[in-house]
Design a protein around this nucleic acid. Sequence first.
RNA 1: UCCUGAGUAGCUCAGCGGUAGAGCGGGUGGCUGUUAACCACUAGGUCGUAGGUUCGAACCCUACCUCAGGAGCCA
Length: 455
Amino acid sequence: MALPPTIAELLQFDRASEGVVAQGWVRTRRDSKSCSFIELNDGSTARGLQVVVDAGCSDAALMPQILTGASLRVRGDLIASPAAGQRWELQARSLEILGPCDAAYPLQKKGHSPEFLRSIAHLRPRTQLFGNLLRVRSRLACAVHEFFQQRGFHWVHTPIITSSDCEGAGEMFRLTTQKTNEVLGAKGDFFGRPTYLTVSGQLQGEALACAMGRIYTFGPTFRAENSNTTRHAAEFWMIEPEMAFFDLEADMTLAEEHVRFMASHMLQNSTAELEFFGRFVDKEVQARLEQTASQRFERISYTDAIEILLASGRTFTHPVVWGEGLQTEHERYLAEEHVRGPVTLYNYPRAIKPFYMRRNDDGKTVAAMDLLVPGIGEIIGGSQREERLDLLLEAMQAQGLESSDYDWYLDLRRHGTVPHSGYGMGFERLLMFATGISNIRDVIAFARTPGHAFT
RNA sequence: UCCUGAGUAGCUCAGCGGUAGAGCGGGUGGCUGUUAACCACUAGGUCGUAGGUUCGAACCCUACCUCAGGAGCCA
């Protein structure tokens, strides 16, 4: 038995066709003396199907009940549209209301504010904005796999439940079956030790890379930071490649190729969605993607970046000092004004970076890199990992970490250690870059941020 | 968590000391192969909550709640 066709499939027909069935939700209805026009959408495509119901149609009497939001099944003939605006339209023979929709339906034909749409997360997927976003999200997720699969990477699955309480990436959500007053990780607790939701699959990813060569993870990640910004969520999807025999140079090259690949993919495969985002969300989005897809990325060492900032003649709110982290205003200046495009910063001071990053020969810096894009800021953060046991132990000690907590991780350096590198890319941040949507809460269907875990 | 701003009709907002308004959406009628259609009429609001100032508060003051933007942290 054939699958019911989507509207996207109907619109791709190359000839008129009698007796087709279309199903979907009503976006708008317009009445004329001789007929009514219904725009029907089923999520398969940005443009809906125009259904024409002649006044003489046996089901024309249903028209007053066909309000925005109602779900319909329409049988009719797909014909070339005599009017401008669409190639095909469906001349209805019969209509069936699958689910009526009353006047309390909150979505209208007009645009809504993102804040209002967030309050109806279960209905906002029916808007054009979210339909377009969710289709892009799906395609770009596949594109991530294409990118890595073409380059000999293996997709691995690192655990979501983790027992290392210090993966070096922020506050963690505790996971327990204990009742309120019992101790996390006590004897009766499920795992018999404290467990958390993962903040990064990197450490396990290193173990897998030191066997499989090139691997990547792509899955949910959890951070319990009380961050209230347009770029942070408590639950987000992260892509973390980890490569044996890659130094920082190769790591940066891969990261740049990755961003460029995603930009090209968006331009080639999501043209209808991109046009929508360019019209209603961000006029610059297409130009930015084209620039990213074609331009060579700049690379600037941290030390040179400090020089550039000092020479800029700008007064920044936060002082520019070698050894301090770069503030958002500094990163914005570098990406948006100095380079005017994507830029990779590398070789950061040792003191401000985690223990696992590889110490450079100067003794002062580590082989770390951040890839910044205009408008979003950091989209990728990565490093070459410290593969030398003695230096790794030294770095752990300097940061007050207990080496016995990382025994299995240190073991990788004891048994056939190799130079290796990796990075993390925030998938939602990539989507923000690809669509121009400026708030992370609007690129994930059901966003989790501090105080918000509804739906 | 800190700083700033905002909460008025289902939605987007105007009103900023003197009897609550518009557009959209809903209803009714009209017009038109329409394209976020158009025209007329109509229903719809304890002005975030609780106090206070005043003859009188949506408007001024205080506290709280909620939301947004910026910062920190980062992906």
